[in-house]
């Protein structure tokens, strides 16, 4: 039974992974990724990692895939990906083949004789009765408390950072100093656009009301700037 589960899910995950890499459509790739992520918890379960299997399912299969799809939607320029250069792909194949070989060799060289340990009956009983969650919780909140806290801070920072980076841009507008701009002008408000404006027009992008003539006539400024770009 275990063997059957392993071979079925292994075949699914490998085929799906190949689909992720080689399917022409990025959306299909994302769906293949969902398949990979969904089959991997099976391996976790085979290794007595029930909590991790659930976490994997939630984080990767649901969260990650959806985030990926959102990313695809945001960069909605082309859904179809162009064919990669043949040359590039060839070299990559060679490289990957060599690398896989190296890894296999490494595995063969180092781990031919694993000292496989059979767990004690008490442990098996605990696992069968309560699952690994309690043990894992004890480990995380006792031995690995500090790394766990750091990981949570990392998540927080990543979240804030992602928001900052992905936000439109940090200008007067975002700080509430300026009225919303049109979507066409949106590009001009990025850092590069500001720099370009600064160097080409000899004045900074930010306009001080009352001093800058353009700032006194806001609507006209918009049109002018759009025209310039």
């Amino acid at each position: 039974m275990e063997n059957l589960i392993f071979w079925v899910f292994a075949a699914v995950s490998v085929l799906a992974a190949i689909g992720v890499v080689f399917h022409r459509s990025i959306v299909y790739s994302a769906l293949f990724l969902l398949a990979v992520f969904s089959s991997i918890p099976a391996f976790f379960l085979l290794n007595n990692a029930d909590f991790l299997a659930i976490a994997q399912m939630v984080v990767y299969a649901v969260g990650m895939t959806i985030v990926m799809l959102f990313g695809i939607m945001f960069t909605r320029e082309k859904f179809m990906e162009e064919e990669p250069g043949r040359r590039q792909r060839f070299y990559a194949f060679v490289l990957i083949a060599g690398f896989s070989l190296a890894l296999l060799l490494a595995a063969g060289a180092f781990y031919t004789q694993y000292q496989v340990v059979t767990p004690g009956s008490a442990f098996i009983a605990t696992i069968q009765q309560d699952g690994s969650t309690g043990l894992l919780g004890a480990l995380i909140f006792q031995k690995y408390l500090l790394p766990f806290e750091i990981a949570s801070v990392l998540l927080l920072v990543a979240m804030v950072g992602a928001i900052i980076i992905a936000k439109k841009s940090f200008t007067e507008e975002s700080a509430g100093l300026k009225y919303p701009v049109s979507e066409k002008e949106y590009i001009n408000e990025t850092a590069e656009g500001m720099l370009k404006e600064y160097y080409e027009m000899g004045r900074p992008g930010s306009k001080i009301p009352g001093v800058d003539k353009a700032a006194d006539e806001p609507e006209k400024t918009d049109n002018e700037m759009a025209g310039v770009q």
């Binding site: 990692a49 909590f51 991790l52 976490a55 994997q56 984080v59 990767y60 969260g63 990650m64 985030v67 990926m68 959102f70 990313g71 945001f74 960069t75 320029e77 690994s132 894992l136 480990l139 995380i140 690995y144 790394p147 766990f148 990981a151 949570s152 990392l154 998540l155 920072v157 990543a158 979240m159 950072g161 992602a162 928001i163 900052i164 980076i165 992905a166 439109k168 949106y186 590009i187 990025t190």
Partner: peptide, 27 residues
């Protein structure tokens, strides 16, 4: 398992920041 959880955390953070960067670059 603990290490796997940490990797999970890191990859989640990485995915979030990576996508944010991609969106910023796309702009």
């Amino acid at each position: 398992h603990v290490f796997a959880i940490f990797i999970l955390t890191v990859s989640a953070a990485e995915a979030a920041v990576g996508l944010a960067i991609i969106i910023a670059l796309y702009r």
